[in-house]
Amino acid sequence: MKRYIKPIAAIIWKDTLLELRTKDTVVAVLVFSLLVVVVFSFAVDPTPQIVALTAPGVLWISFVFGGILGMSRSFSSEAENSSISTLLIAPIGRDAIFFGKMLSSLLFMLLVEILVFPIFAALFNFPLLVIEMVPILVLSTVAVVTVGTVFSSMSINTKAREVLLPVLFFPIALPAIIAAVEITGAVLQGSGLLGVADWLPLLAAFDLIFLVVCPVAFSFVVQD
């Protein structure tokens, strides 16, 4: 177990160190997500009905597109000097590399979400702290980074990386994104998690399935 966990921790340590040096991912994602939220808050007529309809979508557009941007940048650094090969020649399974990269992205995305959500809530007149949002953010973000990590690694050697990644990512991640929007809408309107009994298991099932499928897919993607 130690031989499995330690390399995963090493990849997270390396990505965190790189992020502290470059601030490439978090700053880019944060600025992008904030811009989307602020622009939409001015674009939408702030009546309670319209806000209830549009706000969850706005929130997840900002998180998901920001997340794609972040994951793409994270794998760009792996392409320089072929440094991803440092991970590939280590005596660890490809799945350990996958989980290392995925958990790093999860960490950075959750950090951005923690920073962006209060601003979103203030702009759209929602309570600043909605405790039910915690499991939704975690489950949905796991879905986004799990699928995103595979497709980011797939697009590592392509010139049209920024275009290819969303094109590959969205058709697969769509059920999770729709579930995230529906659950967020219900929770922000005060229905609580019980009001979204159908969507929450769907999101959890999506996570479970892709947490099994994606590490396997990743091991094929990163091999020449």
């Binding site: 090493a10 340590w13 390396k14 160190l17 790189l18 040096r21 470059t22 650094s77 320089e80 000097n81 072929s82 440094s83 090969s85 440092t86 020649i89």
Partner: peptide, 16 residues
Amino acid sequence: DSLLYDELSGLENLQL
């Protein structure tokens, strides 16, 4: 290719 991370020091690359 060096297979090293440019933004890390030599020591950090070896530690990794």
